[in-house]
């Protein structure tokens, strides 16, 4: 019906996130890029489990004899979302502390470790 458009959108999100990581220099922007990749992967997982004209796999007040979408990808996505939040929080905490020390968020200036 709409083809594999959701999958393509997931890959676009992943590509956008990678592009952010490669081209941007602000640490918080990098965190945003990682969040975007995560969103893409989450969308990918959920889209995997969709069944045409299916309903959510919840029996409470469900329509009788309806097809149900696959539950496992949704469970995986829940896990993945929480992991993403944890990652984001930690990265931002690091960024804040780096700013405390160096007074900048420019990754090109934060190069104490090199060589």
């Amino acid at each position: 019906m709409i083809g594999n458009l959701p999958f393509v959108v997931c890959m676009i999100l992943v590509g956008l996130g990678l592009w952010t990581l490669l081209s941007r220099r602000n640490l918080i922007k990098l965190a945003i890029g990682i969040t975007l990749i995560e969103s893409g992967v989450n969308l990918f997982l959920v889209a995997l489990g969709y069944v045409e004209r299916g309903v959510a796999p919840i029996y409470t007040y469900a329509p009788p004899r309806a097809k149900m979408v696959l539950p496992t990808p949704q469970a995986l996505t829940l896990t993945s979302i929480v992991i993403g939040l944890a990652t984001t929080a930690l990265m931002l905490a690091f960024a804040v502390v780096i700013y405390r020390h160096r007074g900048t968020l420019d990754a090109r200036k934060i190069r104490e470790l090199r060589g």
Partner: peptide, 12 residues
């Protein structure tokens, strides 16, 4: 909310 009614799914 509208889609919840459209899908006929209360829990949504």
């Amino acid at each position: 909310v509208l889609l919840g009614a459209a899908f006929g799914q209360v829990v949504y």
